[in-house]
């Protein structure tokens, strides 16, 4: 069983390294690409855990939708990232110090890590062997977690409404296309026929 362990460490190390590069990369496009790499590695870790459905969802949603959207935004908006990062070095020492302190403390935590034997009792029972991952999720999503599922739906609804509220505005001085108006334009509205008498002008 050496292969899964090798895979675990590989995924983990690459995930952490690429997560670091997301922050450290100078080019924002590189940052997004590193982010995608991080997602992939996280998906790999999920697969190792036997959660293949989550792994696929992660790839499809985060890599396929979110990260690509990020990429679009980064490329389409002409943001001067050099300017944005000016304060970065200035606050670097403080950030590093906080990070180190928290890291040391978390190492302490790991040092005292004791998995109580009874903890497994409280952990949810693993899905039966004959049920697929997706099936198992489906079974509890509408029963055990129906409340959360519906609530999450509301959260998404609010997010959608919010996005529309904040972006959909009627602005003055912007030309908009109206297909209805275009197709219903009649010749009379657009053209006025004038008889031009010779020697008089229009």
């Amino acid at each position: 069983m050496i292969i899964p362990e090798i895979a675990f460490y590989l995924f983990s190390v690459v995930a952490i390294a690429s997560a670091f590069m997301v922050v450290a990369a100078r080019n924002p496009v590189h940052s997004v690409l590193f982010l995608i790499l991080t997602f992939f590695n996280a998906a790999g870790l999920f697969v190792l855990l036997g959660a293949e459905f989550l792994a696929m969802i992660l790839v499809i949603v985060y890599v396929g939708a979110v990260a690509v959207l990020f990429l679009f935004v980064v490329m389409m908006l002409d943001i001067n990232f050099v300017e944005l990062r000016q304060g970065f070095l200035q606050y670097m020492p403080v950030g590093v110090a906080i990070g180190i302190v928290l890291l040391i403390e978390l190492v302490f935590v790991l040092g005292t890590w004791v998995i109580v034997p009874e903890a497994k009792v409280f952990a949810e029972a693993p899905p039966p062997a004959n049920v697929t991952n997706t099936h198992a999720l489906g079974q509890i999503l509408y029963t055990e977690y129906v409340y959360l599922f519906q609530a999450a739906g509301l959260v998404l609804l609010v997010a959608m409404v919010g996005a529309i509220v904040l972006t959909l505005r009627t602005r003055e001085g912007v030309r908009r296309q109206s297909a209805f108006a275009q197709t219903h334009r009649r010749r009379e509205d657009a053209i006025e026929i004038k008889k031009v008498l010779p020697g008089q002008g229009a």
Binding site: V158, G162, L166
Partner: peptide
């Protein structure tokens, strides 16, 4: 989890009304 979902529902709506 229900704590977090409720919190986010509230927060998202608040972010929007603030702006």
């Amino acid at each position: 989890i229900s704590l977090y979902v409720g919190l986010e529902l509230q927060s998202l709506a608040l972010y929007v009304v603030a702006a």
